[in-house]
């Protein structure tokens, strides 16, 4: 797969269906984000960097794994930009790559406790692997 920048930008647009150009840089997403303290790139930066075509940097971002997909940013964005959907698109671009998994079945047993719901494991696999 060739990895020129336009291809990455188009892929992100295609997966997310979101147009980052509608962002007016108000920062309500960052204001609303419950995972902000754990993120290396704040939601508004993330949107801005997608717009600037800096997808490769975003694919290295830890924010991808810290986003809670709680849609607070989606709900409150006055421009319908959906930052968390963009984040998901880049996350998918990472885990769809060869070796892009962030979790493997082998490491599961040690992460479990007695009460963990099935839903948590399904979510983890959905979020961290293909």
């Amino acid at each position: 797969m060739h990895q020129n920048n336009n291809y990455l930008v188009e892929t992100a647009a295609q997966i997310s269906g979101v147009n980052p150009k509608s962002c007016m840089k108000c920062g309500k997403c960052t204001a609303s984000c419950p995972a902000f303290d754990d993120m290396d790139l704040s939601p508004h930066m993330f949107v801005s960097m997608v717009e600037a075509g800096r997808i490769r940097e975003l694919m290295e971002s830890t924010s991808l794994w810290k986003c809670l997909s709680c849609f607070a940013c989606v709900e409150r964005c006055p421009r319908g930009v959906e930052p968390s959907t963009l984040m998901e698109a880049v996350r998918l671009m990472v885990i769809r790559k060869q070796g892009g998994h962030r979790i493997s079945a082998d490491e599961i047993p040690e992460l479990l406790d007695k009460r963990i719901p099935q839903q948590a494991l399904t979510s983890a696999f959905r979020k961290y692997s293909r």
Partner: peptide, 10 residues
Amino acid sequence: ECCGGYITVK
């Protein structure tokens, strides 16, 4: 507000 359940495994 979100409780952060999604990421509880990792």
